[in-house]
Design a protein around this nucleic acid. Structure first.
Lengths: 339, 339
DNA sequence: CTGAAAGCGCTTACAG
DNA sequence: CTGAAAGCGCTTACAG
């Protein structure tokens, strides 16, 4: 099955049609300055007439690489990762590099499969927003020479990463509530085996330790979802008022949002009966019935930074200095904490 | 820059290490049955030892195609498209075909660029969830022999497509409100140049025409967003009660959600003061403070169907019958219409 | 079952 | 500025 049979014209066909040699066609495409305008025109016309499309597999084979970067994303349903993606895009666009996405959908096996696919495709490099799990496969890919930068996960001695400071974010959330007058705080999130959750909790603990007479209750939830929040909200609403926290740090916006909804259904009001701070500054946070105060990670910036690290690693290769960038989250004050 | 210099082992290296010929290594990878178990083991061991990864560019070059499908998506932020993506994934997973995503982000130029990228990469085929705009580039790609199936957009004489019946969806929404006792309906959405919006409106008109004494007001909005809904809600809340519709069909969940929020902030209640139906059955629809009655398009099913159409077109090529599948949306009754 | 050879479509020195 | 030739890494008949 060669190209002629399939009807797909190749560069040889273009050369014949234009009355030039193969190399000239290639030059028109890759080094147009080396070709006279007339010849260039003839070649372009031949390309048009034949509907020629360059075979990038052959091109990559010769070049040993593709001008394309792959991004394996753990959870496209979380708008935080969409923000990261947009940041990555913007840096790559400036450089004319294409971005291919793969949705691992919180599935370790898929994550590994796409890592392999990208490796076999000889992409220039890979961006990985991973599951909270050992990065064995990514490590192996890297050892075989493919640059892999982690987003939302720290690098190590052999890799770069971009994270935001979860402990600091937890600290900001708790301190904000304390400043608003809360004294009986609760931190909700889970499972606690998620490093993001435990770091945020740690930060909240620190803020509490700095203040006098403030207590922090830890409520572990099964998941960080809206449904998880519904359960939590019902549970909190069922408590006697004096046993209820007056301020809640939720480890995710979805959780916060669900909690608020359930409490409102139970006749309680936010922030009046309880102030709430979420985490992630998801797209819906600002559009909620009670706009959500939340700790926002700089998704776009994290995306931009990770793309730059990857490009640097691609270009410098061996004399590249691996590092992890830690970005600071910031607090977005809205109605749920009683602005 | 050959592989040896870059340190990447190639099949020749594996062959030498295993003490077999190049063709045998290839057979171990592609036709293992033709190779004796001992030889197979030796080759596998060599692959392990060297960390060999097959170069899929070379492979695609020989085969003339890649076992990969591309999906250009207009708006990953709308969970409807994520549903489609999951459906596509599930069909492709069964066949061991990989899926590459590209986010055109409602940008026609990006859409065209990614179409070109996928074409050059010689993927097996392309799925396209397009902008509401002329499909010139897609048409050209298709004419050059690349199968392109449209999702959420109809096909034509030369292409397949999968859509859901927007007019029917609009009809379902309006009829539901009429059955609930509404007599002064409004349809909100826009711009009306969007074919999905005008079709949904047309369906609503039909439902109204079937009923006696029911009026339908058309309110064009600038966009289908939550913010657009906030404006709309404020506007409706400002009307005198007798001038306010008692039932609203919103052309998108985001719009419906924003409308409800603004009305509630203005002291009105949904569904008490106005019943509301949205469109899309977005992930947040069921999790809202007033769970949203909505017309759901079968995203997963649309994804599955479009992937099947694409695979069929890839396999049958010339004797493939182009067609457009029209899926029926259905109504999800929740609190916002007063269940 | 194994191995040598041709060829996929392109890019890049190199000689003119 | 043009054109012939080598080679990227793989797969697939084909002869043994």
């Amino acid at each position: 099955m060669n190209s002629a049979e399939r009807g797909r014209p190749v560069m040889k066909d273009v050369a014949r049609q234009a009355g030039v040699s193969l190399g000239t066609v290639s030059n028109v495409l890759n080094n147009p300055d080396l070709v006279s305008p007339q010849t260039r025109d003839r070649v372009h016309r031949a390309i048009e007439e034949l509907g020629f499309v360059r075979n990038s597999a052959a091109r990559s084979l010769v070049l040993g690489k593709a001008e394309t970067v792959g991004f394996v994303i753990v959870d496209l349903a979380n708008s935080f990762f969409l923000d990261i993606e947009r940041g990555v895009q913007s840096v790559l666009d400036e450089r004319g590099i294409k971005l291919l996405l793969a949705n691992s959908d919180v599935d370790l096996q898929k994550q590994d499969e796409y890592l392999s696919l990208f490796e076999e495709t000889q992409l220039s490099g890979i961006l990985l927003a991973p599951l909270d799990a050992p990065l064995t496969a990514a490590q192996a890919v890297r050892e075989r020479g493919m640059p892999v930068v982690q987003v939302n996960w720290p690098g190590d001695a052999t890799s770069c990463g971009v994270v935001s400071d979860d402990a600091h974010g937890g600290y900001l959330a708790a301190r904000h509530l304390i400043e608003r007058g809360c004294r009986r705080l609760a931190f909700a999130g889970g499972p606690l085996t998620l490093s993001a959750v435990s770091s945020r909790h740690r930060g909240a603990l620190r803020a509490v330790a700095e203040a006098d007479g403030v207590a922090l209750e830890l409520i572990e939830t099964e998941r960080l979802t809206v449904r998880g929040g519904h359960q939590l909200g019902e549970q909190l609403a069922a408590r006697r008022p004096e046993d209820r926290p007056d301020g809640l740090v939720a480890a995710a916006d979805a959780l916060a949002s669900g909690t608020i909804q359930a409490m409102m259904l139970a006749g309680l009001r936010v922030p009046h009966d309880m102030r709430v701070v979420g985490y992630d500054n998801n797209h819906f946070a600002d559009d909620s019935p009670v706009p959500l105060t939340t700790v926002g990670q700089p998704g776009r910036e994290m995306g931009r930074a990770s793309a730059r690290l990857l490009l640097e690693e691609i270009e410098q290769r061996d004399d590249h200095l691996h590092r992890t960038l830690v970005m600071k989250p910031r607090l977005f004050e809205r109605a749920s904490s009683g602005r």
